[in-house]
Design a protein around this nucleic acid. Structure first.
Length: 463
RNA sequence: GGCGACGUCGCCAAGUGGUAAGGCAAGGGUCUGCAAAACCCUCAUCAUGGGUCCGAAUCCCAUCGUCGCCUCCA
């Protein structure tokens, strides 16, 4: 397997620290608001990564954090007059539900800042002891970037190139403008914990370093997140962790591209948000996943009605190959005989694509070719016994993608009435009462039931 | 202004040296009472301009454009 490493800007062979085990840390959300489809994209990307690694036989230790101590949370809680921890708990619960609704596997560990405070303090203390950090007179503790000689290696910038303070005022207490806070002195009305530097709370980046150390150890295989986190978040995380341990931190840095809405990034601060909840009220979870699979995880993802419609149609096409055989006896047709060889070829082509930096779009192309083979075989009279193994393979490989490909469910109990209507319609068709037949079909369609006439009988499904 | 990524058919998009996967849309056909679904056929020389090479979408340079970061952000 090869995967693209942001650190080297190249694709590299994938080798784990420990054979058969992948330690993967993915930055989760700051929980102060409804999660949006951009968060969904990131979560889906790493869910697909995880599922594929597990399919390839790795035991994946997947950690995703919740940042539940932060300025935005505190501000919002104060505005609403609620407890910040109650607020963050609500959005943590919501996010967990969003992930479940999107068919995203829960991380094997989900640490929170508020429950990692002792480890954070120990880490900050360790950095102070090594002179990599210093307490300032105002009670803050800052990381000393000049002490880290390869600072900037992830984002490919040099300290001299950066214009700190160009837009915001540089904190006077800092030795160097790029120094960043590990620990912030408490302000009135904020959550605070006792520390060697007085009451305060963690800065933004330190929690991920501490949770990594606590959950996965000093070195990990994959560190993931959105590419908007490369600087400063991940850069600072590297600086903290490596200064503390003296060892290389993450072997591979993976970053997903930004979801694009109307040509720009969807983000809380821009206000152009579509929440996961709102999305799922209109579209199936598979649609969002399909959209992600059809692109490259590193590239911007175009999110609009047109691309969503295309994803939905693509799903229908995948499902078409899973429809049952129409023939009862085995066929000797050429198209049917081709199934076993095609099945074998599909699997290796799928693996080849996915092994190359999770090229899901390429792998999807392989599956669509296979769909055609399957449908042709069925049209040529393949029996269930002939068709089923190939369909099982398609199920398996789409399952690795995390696609459910389930048929829509309608109201319970409606099925027998639909069947009854189709019986009546079949009789009408026998009597060539086309107007009546079409009326039934059209009216059912309005009610969300698609009727398709086959050679011998009609089939139906919810649309 | 600096750094990074990128620019492939109407839309999404794979492909990183040997003459362009796939999906959606569109047009034509088979099937059908008519549809739908499925199947068959058609549909691009890869932003622009130079350069390297026997040969480039794929490497180099320049130009134009897009996106991300430099400030909270998946």
């Amino acid at each position: 397997m090869r995967l693209y490493n942001t650190l080297t800007r190249k694709k590299e062979d994938f080798e784990t620290l420990e054979a058969g085990v992948v330690k993967m840390y993915v930055c989760g959300p700051t929980v102060y608001n409804d999660a949006h489809v951009g968060h969904a994209m990131s979560a889906l990307v790493f869910d697909i990564v995880r599922r594929y690694l597990e399919f390839r036989g790795f035991n994946v230790r997947h950690v995703m954090n919740y940042t539940d101590v932060d300025d935005k949370i505190i501000n919002r809680a104060n505005q609403m007059g609620v407890d910040p921890f109650a607020l963050s708990q609500k959005y943590i619960d919501d996010f967990d539900q969003n992930l479940a609704d999107l068919n995203i596997l829960p991380a094997t560990a989900k640490p929170r800042v508020s429950k990692t405070i002792p480890q954070i303090i120990a880490l900050v203390q360790g950095l102070v002891d090594k002179a990599c950090a210093y307490p300032a007179a105002n009670g803050d503790v800052y990381f000393r970037v000049t002490r880290d000689d390869d600072y900037g290696k992830l984002s490919a910038r040099k300290l001299d190139d950066m214009q700190a303070g160009a837009r915001i005022e540089v904190e006077e207490q800092k030795e160097h403008p790029m120094d960043f806070a590990l620990w912030k002195a408490a302000k009135p009305g904020e959550p605070a914990w006792d520390s060697p530097w007085g009451k305060g709370r963690p800065g933004w980046h330190i929690e991920c370093s501490a949770m990594n150390l606590a959950e996965l150890g000093e070195q990990i295989d994959i560190h993931g997140g959105g590419n908007d986190l490369i600087f400063p978040h991940h850069e600072n995380e590297i600086a903290q962790t490596e200064s503390f341990t003296g060892k290389p931190f993450a072997r591979y840095w993976m970053h997903n591209g930004m979801l694009q809405l109307g040509g720009e990034k969807m983000s809380k601060s821009l206000g152009n948000i579509i929440s996961i909840k709102d999305f799922l009220a209109k579209r199936d979870a598979d649609v969002m996943r399909m959209l992600v699979l059809n692109g490259s995880y590193r590239a911007p993802l175009m999110f609009n009605e047109e691309t969503l419609d295309a994803a939905e149609k693509g799903l229908e096409r995948l499902k078409s190959a899973l429809r049952p055989a129409s023939a009862s006896a085995d066929s000797s047709a050429e198209a049917v005989a081709a199934l076993p060889a095609a099945s074998a070829a599909v699997k290796s082509a799928y693996l080849a694509a996915m092994d190359d930096d999770f090229n899901s779009a390429g792998a999807l192309g392989v599956l669509f070719d296979f769909v055609r083979v399957l449908n042709t075989a069925r049209d040529s009279g393949a029996s269930a016994a002939q068709l089923t193994p190939a369909q099982a393979l398609l199920r398996e490989l789409t399952g690795v993608f995390g696609l459910r490909l389930s048929e829509k469910q309608g109201q319970t109990g409606a099925e027998k009435f639909i069947e009854l209507l189709l019986e009546v319609r079949a009789e009408a068709r026998r009597q060539k009462q086309w107007a009546l037949s079409d009326l039934i079909r059209d009216r059912l369609k309005e009610l969300g039931v698609t009727v398709e006439d086959g050679k011998t009988s009609a089939t139906w499904r919810y649309l």
